[in-house]
Design a protein around this nucleic acid. Structure first.
Lengths: 176, 176
DNA sequence: GCTAAATATATCGTAGTGATATATCGTAGT
DNA sequence: ACTACGATATATCACTACGATATATTTAGC
């Protein structure tokens, strides 16, 4: 695997041929919550993967507008499967809301509590976005469906956790 | 806020004076799960923050070994509080395990299920690490404690979710 | 026919990562 | 006392990634 976008590209092309633009668009409405990708990564990587023989591009220009559609080669399939079997999966999180909470002892208590409330609202907002996605649980291939379910379940868990903690932290302090 | 490390530096210095090395060490055993920082960011940023008057460095060399300890200035305190009050908190996730699951329909069912099991084991491992941290819930300032609780609760939730999904996906298929 | 949005590729400055170089101090074992 | 190793401490560099934007064409709505 060359870099971070390599698996998404190979994975999406394993489902069907796509252009760089379509890859970006697909990522932006599916994996973006846990795996983002930018044009600045995608286009150079498509060229590299073609040079390495893992994908094959075909000209699909529409009139004067250039367009290149890529499909996975046999070698690309093997590479994708090797990655799927690979043992180590890294996980990185960058959560500014948690960082604020971590330093919130520097604030007056009521303002710190408002940060928890703001976190809850943030996840409620995301929940709305996820529920607005037209594909509903059960209507996708089982493991795509699994990941969609994860998104919903995780977001719901976060909102509930915030609510519980708010309750715990304000407990008995309502009129003291 | 200059860049991504700025808030951690200001936040940690608001608790007490530290050297760059100590900032890195503190981050690595506290915020690293949701906010990492590298020397390549920390040292240049310390200089920039000192130039801007948000922190003040003092020489604390020990014999021939150079050491510089920084503390927050009044302006730095104001900057930190402004950030704590700021409205927008970004959240980014990069989860290779989820990405694998997303493309797992390309695998035979039993191998795909093993990916779920591997995810569960990964979070069980993290849970062990978190529980090994000497500071236990209740023994820190309330909001530091809150974030520690979050880490434990989140990791537990992930292991449970994996177990539930494994059950759902193998349901009735044990001897069919 | 006009305009706005969508399609499509390409690139560039800035910033971050992880690794490493350099050097000293503390300490545990012998 | 000596020595080796790990921890402390700062600094830097090559590589990679990101986000934004430039450029241009086609489609769709009105």
């Amino acid at each position: 695997m060359g870099n971070a976008v390599t698996p998404v590209i190979l994975g999406l092309l394993s489902i069907g041929p796509r252009s760089g633009y379509e890859i970006k668009a697909t990522v932006d409405r599916s994996t973006v919550f846990f795996w983002a990708a930018s044009y600045g990564q995608i286009y150079p990587e498509l060229r590299r993967l073609e040079d390495d023989g893992l994908i094959e591009g075909e000209d699909a220009s529409n009139g004067a507008r250039a367009r290149r559609v890529y499909r996975l080669t046999a070698a690309g399939h093997r590479e994708l499967e090797a990655w799927l079997h690979g043992g180590d999966f890294k996980m990185e999180l960058r959560d500014e809301s948690l960082l604020r909470l971590f330093f919130a002892d520097a604030l007056p208590r009521d303002e710190a509590l408002r940060l928890v409330e703001a976190r809850r609202r943030m996840f409620e907002h995301v929940l709305g976005q996820l529920r607005a996605i037209d594909e509903r649980p059960g209507e996708d291939p089982p493991f795509v469906d699994l990941v969609l379910r994860w998104g919903l379940a995780y977001t719901e868990w976060e909102t509930q956790w915030c609510a519980e903690q708010l309750e715990r932290l304000t407990e008995g302090a309502t009129s003291a």
